[in-house]
């Protein structure tokens, strides 16, 4: 009995000490993953995901408490990139990717209140008080922050029009492959 207890205790102690030493030696500082993920996020802090800014989301994704499909402006592209980063597979069927969108101001309704201008995370809305506002296409991320702010519903999200430069061959649809 004594031998059994002693030997097990000794064994446990030795292994425990060994692990303790190893833990010191192989300590890994911090989790660089969250930072790397944050670098991949749009960074506009638009808040459509329901979290406080892109860095919070990055942390949540790194911890696994948020899915990679959480970012609407990032869309499918970001989801696949994140999935590859994390080495997980992701079902993109759930991602509603309406394609790239941009905000558009209906000039006849705009009252020039400047609210959208202040809400835009990328300064894509230009204008001045009592002047009709306009959206700079290149800077708009389609996050939709401005849409809610507009008192006259003059701002809508529209898909980016397809041009010769943007057209993409459709994926072949094959009966035998369906």
């Amino acid at each position: 009995m004594l031998a059994a207890v002693t030997s097990l205790t000794a064994l446990g102690a030795i292994l425990g000490c060994g692990l303790g030493v190893a833990a010191r030696k192989f300590a890994v500082e911090g989790d660089p993953l969250a930072d790397e993920i944050e670098a991949m996020m749009p960074g506009s802090n638009c808040g459509q995901c329901g979290m406080a800014g892109c860095s919070a989301v990055a942390k949540a994704i790194a911890e696994g408490s948020a899915t990679v499909t959480i970012c609407p402006p990032g869309g499918k592209a970001l989801a696949t990139a994140l999935a590859a980063k994390l080495g997980i597979s992701v079902d993109l069927g759930d991602v509603v990717d309406s394609g790239p969108q941009i905000a558009q101001v209906k000039e006849e309704i705009c009252i020039g209140c400047c609210r959208c201008m202040k809400a835009c995370p990328t300064d894509a809305v230009v204008g001045a008080a009592k002047q009709i506002h306009n959206v700079i296409r290149e800077a708009c991320t389609g996050c939709g922050s401005c849409v809610e702010r507009c008192p006259t519903e003059a701002i809508t999200l529209r898909p980016v029009p397809v041009t010769l430069q943007h057209w993409v061959w459709p994926k072949p649809e094959i009966e035998a492959e369906a």
Partner: peptide, 27 residues
């Protein structure tokens, strides 16, 4: 010591420790 009956317990202890160690190394 004639502790054959402790074999399973001891081995699992050792394996758990080795795995823990491996995890640290891989990490």
């Amino acid at each position: 010591l004639g502790l054959g009956y402790l074999r399973l317990l001891t081995f699992i202890l050792v394996i758990a420790a080795v795995v823990q160690f491996t995890e640290m190394v891989v990490h």
